[in-house]
Amino acid sequence: MIEIVATGPLNTVQDLGRPGYRNIGVTASGAMDPLALRIGNVLLGNAPGAAGIEVQTFPFQVRFSEGGAFAITGADCRATLDGVPLPPWWTAGAAPGQMLELFPPLKDARAYLCLAGGVAVAPVMGSRSTSLRGGFGGLQGRVLATGDHVATDRAADGFLPKGGFGVVPPAVALKDAFPVAEGGALLIRALPAGEHDLFGADAQRFWSQLWKISARSDRTGYRLSGDPIHPTEVMEMRSHGVVPGVIQVPPAGEPIVQMSDANTAGGYPKIAGVIEADLWRLGQARIGSLLRFVPATHAEARAAEQALAAYIADVHKTARLVRQALAGMA
């Protein structure tokens, strides 16, 4: 059990989301950086889909009313436990009464606080993710507030070395599988979507230019600013299902990338769709930062997915073995 001592306005309980209900208009929601949430859970011996807290406004401060293990992953938020700094991507134990503080990260956008056992809220339609738009899931369908108490489910037994331990963050460990930013811009791979070719010469400008993530961006979607692009003809679109990562172009010509809280249906022309394996990186992109889209293939997307899966499996196996070995030596 933890108590929220201080929080910004948009921090919520999230798990890996609520897919499977788009056919009744329900957004999947879920962590914007699902990789960070997974690794946090793996470090704690939780199920990979256990719910954690997505922190995107800082400072964020919690008190452990009961002791327990926790993990901090995602953006390096310079966390401290009773004032003692913790490395990023780290798990440690907290004694009853200890205070954990997360400060504004200098890069990346979202930090994840996972708790041993996972956040205990009742699943709604198979998920503990907060759907702010629908007003359900998470903690009463709303953002976390000062004074909230967040309970946890029963934790797995596991040896935790003194001082805790961590992992090499994926941005470092996977730098070969994920294109490194050039001149500070994030490279995001995407596949051309249904109306791509109708943009004519503007399609090339979509891929070649740097887009800036505008201030009107949130968990629902990122609005990009740049040199507008337009289809060569006005088309009458019928509403159809969409998934996070779809890049739609409204009449004004500046694209919108749908994110975790994406609408389930859309009707704007869509120029491309981000490969799923790059969504976690987009989920960490900050307002005001630059990105460029890189055309990709299904084969390249699969290679990126395999790199992610191998990293997760390696963390899982190694963390277990290291715990066993250290427990044996303790």
Partner: peptide
């Protein structure tokens, strides 16, 4: 039908 991609796993059939 017209079939297009939205990302890697989604296929739109129109």
């Amino acid at each position: 039908a017209r079939i297009s991609f939205i990302g890697t796993r989604a296929f739109l059939i129109e």
